[in-house]
Design a protein around this nucleic acid. Structure first.
Lengths: 199, 199
DNA sequence: ACGTAAAATTACGGACCACGCAAATTTAGC
DNA sequence: GCTAAATTTGCGTGGTCCGTAATTTTACGT
């Protein structure tokens, strides 16, 4: 990777972290694009070269994780049943992370920030774009057709929904907070079982 | 209903129709809030008293339909299995409508408009708010707990996902266009079956 | 080390949005 | 007809996002 490409990645990371930190610190309503740009050491115009909104900057890491999940589905063993592959691939993204290394209070801060009304729906809006990656991976594994079949899109949308609901639950949990990976796995398994009404 | 309440509803309807019409006519990127307000015969400030964005105005009818679906779930026979109730309630909203009475070219225009990149994710963002209604209805019917159980939220999110995917497919269909209700029912049935990989 | 080209950053201006506030208007109720 | 409540509207403001062009940085060849 060239110096220029490395610097671009570094800028993107810096902007994303600055967005997240400032939002947790001050609340999303007190964070302006200009603040994020200043914290990252670039101009506001540069911020908009990288992200179309502060929400996109905040969620960039989560969105990258969704992309990585789709890639991981493709890389699962070829004969593996679809849902086993999907669940393993998705859960993997939420397990190999240094959650326990986050500063004290960080997770509580993130949870509080994500509850702000301004955040409602923003993740879903942005995740629409990464859903297609998952649909492509599912279509490849199941031999279904993206243009003719609902199936791959349904799986992708249902997976995104399960991840969303589980992370929303995680955000609203009181201590002791269950691991996000467990919640996500639970959600995906319920989907794969056809969401039977509990007894 | 008082005159005042009737006038408020009429204003909301007028604004929503104006938004949808102008977006179909000119493309969303050529429609300003001021244009919508003028077409509805009110000020731009009044527009923002009713809607927080032009997307909310455009999708208002669809969002109202989601709300109506949640209400309809509550009204299904008490002993009816959950998914039968949900599918019937949701599909009902997309059947009792005068699709065939729309002007020639209208459906094609709506489809084209919804494909615009600016629209991506906007419906999902807004639908987040109505999902809770469906979750409440599901919790009531299944005796699950909104604060403790993932289940009602998973069902609500999965239903919203199925509706979204089906309407997206409908929008992208070449003539002869299948009825939206059929696509939605198909999607919901696949979800209720656990999205098994097709053979 | 230097010169040129390509890419990225930045400054600037402009269009647009969304909201708070208060004045004006309309509706409700007696 | 009068008063109160609700709604509409005008105005101002803060903020966002983009297009454009100038400036700076990096890449590459010599």
């Amino acid at each position: 990777m060239s110096l220029r490409e490395r610097k671009k990645e570094q800028t993107r990371e810096a902007l994303s972290w600055a967005a997240l930190h400032l939002a947790v610190e001050r609340g999303i309503e007190n964070v302006r694009v200009e603040d994020i740009a200043a914290a990252a050491g670039v101009s506001a115009r540069t911020f908009n070269n990288y992200f179309t909104s502060k929400f996109e900057a905040i969620y960039w890491r989560a969105l990258a994780r969704s992309e990585a999940a789709a890639v991981a589905v493709r890389e699962r063993p070829a004969g593996e049943p679809l849902w086993d592959a999907v669940i393993a691939a998705v859960v993997e993204q939420y397990t190999a992370e240094g959650e326990s290394r986050a500063p004290e209070g960080w997770q509580a801060g993130v949870r509080a920030m994500m509850q702000a009304p301004e955040m409602t729906g923003e993740y879903l809006k942005l995740s629409r774009r990464t859903e297609r990656e998952m649909a492509v991976a599912v279509a490849d594994r199941t031999g279904t057709d993206l243009d003719k079949d609902l199936y791959p899109h349904l799986v992708a949308a249902a997976v995104a929904a399960a991840v969303y609901v589980a992370t929303d639950r995680w955000m609203q949990s009181e201590p002791p907070v269950p691991p996000m990976a467990s919640l996500i796995e639970d959600g995906l398994r319920q989907i794969a079982a056809g969401l039977p009404a509990p007894r």
